[in-house]
Design a protein around this nucleic acid. Structure first.
Lengths: 329, 329
DNA sequence: TTGTATGCGTTATCAT
DNA sequence: ATGATAACGCATACAA
């Protein structure tokens, strides 16, 4: 042996098979080659257990078949489901996924983008809350839920339609007066449109509504105060609540039950996201379901797309209402 | 410009700064260099917005600062929490994570290992259910929850101790007779020891117990039949149940409630894993909590470890009992 | 059709 | 201390 404990290279395969380096390369890349040569090479590959070094390959071809994915974390069920689907889509197309959990830290997000750039990944899919993320032009970037500008495609669920759908579902189930509860940043991201859609639907149906929107710093208890303030004789002013996420719905339902209210008899609750217990069991609440698989598929389609000119700048995918036990049906 | 739309290379930086290639390399890698030279190089780097190409670096140095992580999916909360923690640990040490969701498919698992090898990752952390996974010697592999043999370190929670802890918790809360419910493969993986620990504790405490273990093919309804069979006059034969996972506990609790039983008044339930609602809210049930952070940290420590000879072959990390509303305390 | 030679962007070993 | 140069493993244009 010439190279004792080092992985075999193409050169080794060529020597073993008694052919030239170029021939080995051709066999590996499926370029036609003499039958007898091909067999010899394949045998040598098997014998030496040869694997192409994808770093050398990437260096040469400037393609790495790797996509970087950035999300705040994998703790939130929605994020982890999303990443799971993206992973599947990428794998189906022979792509690998480099994963980055940023913990909502703008600095980390920025440094991950830089990392991705120097990793020479073929593209980036990111769900970022950093309003001024700097990204170089030469690596395709797809954003989820946050619109950066016309030059960066953004994939989201139909948040506006979803907000409307929530209001309609509550009214259809008999609600006479609604409330919208929201927590989150003032950032102008796509999910903000849930409110607009909700309001529009309420006005169209001529149903009264109220809203409680928590700013970044405010504690959850502000919601409990809001609820208390609207209790009269053991009943709430409203009989239907749309929470901006299933997470918030879960928390609000805890508060409602503590106040002695029954769900859905006294008050009905609709969330947003479509979170299921343990990822694939029952819904945690009646909810507007985001089309996570389709969103993932769309992101992957876009990031791998060649024709960069004519990609749309915002794609909203349809949502649907799902019964989850916290409404009448 | 010589190279129009191509990323700048070290050579470009050298030309821009008017120094030699080697000098640029040294500046980048923090090797001492003349002050004036360093400044010139740093300025050129900034001006050209130069980034090192980590594929060329990896090719040369045979280190990629990338670890491949393999789990069945990111849907199960336990897996996603685990991956989240591993991601954090790796990031802290300047490592990147290549993620692979295998969907329990042995073929996919095998092909991912091959992929990882040819990606020339620095190591692999995997949670695999493939009993005969083939892995080459030259890339460090750490296993989670599944013991492959002395040559592959395995990290797990103290499943045996956890099983015992569950029995003790139930008895401490007044249970007189217990049941152990389990679903899963006959594979001899670490979580199987939960049963052994449970049995041992029951015998030590002289508490009667029964078990219902579902084989791979059997449907969940077999559990419901089991429960029905042990109902007498609206009461169960046992007053404490240890479910092998929180997921199973969640399902069983649904069945129990449907049968009109109250939890924890009529029957107490303990699960295993420490799953929380939405990842970081309340526990889904009283449970044995796996030390996920520590497990992740340990895996990363091991996979990056240099001294390969003296790594232990099995590391069990301590678990703890947590109250989650399905026991008396 | 098969083999040869060059270069991808780095690092590291040399002379200088 | 600095600069030229040879690998690293692969793809490919070009020569045979």
């Amino acid at each position: 042996m010439n190279k004792p404990n080092s992985a075999p290279t193409m050169k080794d395969v060529a020597r073993e098979a008694g052919v030239a380096l170029g021939t080995v390369s051709k066999v590996i890349n499926g370029i036609p080659v003499g039958e007898s040569y091909r067999l010899k090479v394949e045998e040598a590959i098997k014998k030496l257990n040869y694997r192409v070094n994808s770093y050398a390959k990437g260096l040469k071809s400037n393609r790495t078949f790797t996509i970087a994915v950035m999300v705040p974390n994998l703790i939130s069920p929605f994020f982890s489901k999303l990443v799971n689907c993206i992973n599947k889509s990428l794998a189906q197309r022979g792509y690998r996924m480099l994963l980055c959990a940023t913990d909502y830290d703008p600095e980390q997000e920025q440094s991950y983008v830089i990392m991705a750039e120097q990793q020479k990944v073929d593209g980036i899919i990111c769900l970022s809350y950093n309003p001024n993320l700097q990204v170089s032009e030469d690596v395709p970037l797809i954003s989820i839920d946050r619109y950066f500008g016309a030059h960066i495609p953004c994939v989201a669920s139909d948040n506006y339609g979803g907000g409307a759908l929530a209001a309609q579902a509550l009214v259809r189930n008999g609600c006479k007066s609604l409330a919208f509860l929201r927590v989150g940043s003032k950032l102008t991201n796509e999910p903000n449109k849930r409110r607009d859609g909700f309001i529009n639907a309420c006005e169209n149906m001529a149903v009264p509504y109220m809203m409680k929107i928590l700013d970044d710093g405010q504690p959850y208890s502000a919601f409990e105060e809001f609820l208390q303030a609207h209790m009269q004789d053991g009943k709430l002013d409203f009989d239907g609540i749309f929470c901006v996420t299933d997470l918030l719905a879960h928390q609000i339902m805890g508060s409602l039950r503590q106040m002695g209210l029954r769900i859905p008899e006294d008050v009905q609750v609709v969330g947003y996201d479509g979170i299921r217990h343990f990822g694939d069991l029952d819904y945690t609440c009646s909810t507007i379901v985001q089309p996570v698989e389709e969103m993932a598929e769309t992101c992957v389609d876009l990031v791998l797309e060649k024709n960069e000119g004519k990609t749309p700048s915002l794609i909203c995918l349809p949502v649907r209402y799902a019964y989850g036990g916290t409404t009448r049906s």
